[in-house]
Amino acid sequence: MFEMRGIKKSFNGNRVLNGVDVTVDKGEVVAIIGASGSGKTTLLRCANFLERADEGNVRVGDKWVDVKKANKKDILDIRRMTAFVFQNYSLFSNKTALGNVSECLTTPRKVPRDEARRIAMEALTRVGIADKADDYPSELSGGQQQRVGIARAIAVSPDIIFLDEPTSALDPELIGEILLLLKDLALAGATMLIVTHEIRFAMEVANQVLFMDEGLVVESGPPREIFRFPKEERTRAFLRRFTSDFDYQI
């Protein structure tokens, strides 16, 4: 179970998050949609303290943290219970695919080296790139790099995975296969909070969709309601911009 309550965040006096609430139940997928600049990335980054929110509470599992009072240990605890998949992959460029995954187990989580390698290999197999285990990120395509990013996220058995537009840096022909992989993870019971512009994916995979605008969750609900019968005018205006061109069949 993951929760954020009353999250507020300003950058240099500029309010970016205006009191956001999010709940993701175990095994659920929650998709966040919204226009550019609405604060989606900032919200995810506040969830694992890559960005420190000004106000609010974050809960992962049984751990509640008041962002104002969070100390180093609280932050490490939250980060070690969660995982993040970045838009630009953010793989360690001095580590192989296998090293990228096993490093996250051995160094912060103190998993013995052999066991870490075994778990990492399992994760790479699961995302379909076991044959690239010894390649460096620079030797991998964008799609393969994002698979490593996802392998890293599942290998640490997190309570929740945060994904910030995991497919938007990819070539169109690769987007579908990554979305399919994420769908498989969801079906296998992974808990995910994902920022995405892939409406069809959100429709098929998400249990709940949040529409954000100007630092607020304006509307939320099951995907069919949000996409078919949006109540708010702002949601409707946003959805009108998505033509079928932006959708990928999965």
């Binding site: 490490l76 953010s90 001095n94 160094t107």
Partner: peptide
């Protein structure tokens, strides 16, 4: 910056991030 953030997001301390990721690079 993403090399630091990749490490921090997975629970590396600053010292761990330096030792394992930043210094080698």
């Amino acid at each position: 910056k993403d090399q630091f953030e990749g490490a921090y997001a997975f629970g590396f301390t600053k010292a761990q991030a330096y030792r394992r990721i930043i210094i080698p690079q």
